[in-house]
Amino acid sequence: MRINFGAAGRLILVTAALLGGCATTPVQPWERGRLARWDMRWDPDPLQAAMREHAHFSKEGSTGEIGAAGGGCGCN
């Protein structure tokens, strides 16, 4: 088998092949049990997340780390 592709042909071929990777089976509404689990949350423990954010915010306050700028003493 001999295949001759130009540069454009190769590009199209690769793009098309990558598009094929987008083919997925959607998660059905009743299949979201695992996604809804407590340990699948971005922040499983809101209190701990708030404390971590507070420390991080205090340290990085001068760069406006988590959306708002603030002091650096960690006392607010």
């Binding site: 199209i12 071929l13 098309a16 092949a17 598009l19 094929g20 987008c22 083919a23």
Partner: peptide, 13 residues
């Protein structure tokens, strides 16, 4: 011919 195969895959997305 090859492209059409990939396009079919892509369309299934």
């Amino acid at each position: 011919r090859i492209l059409s195969i990939f396009v079919m895959f892509a369309a299934s997305a």
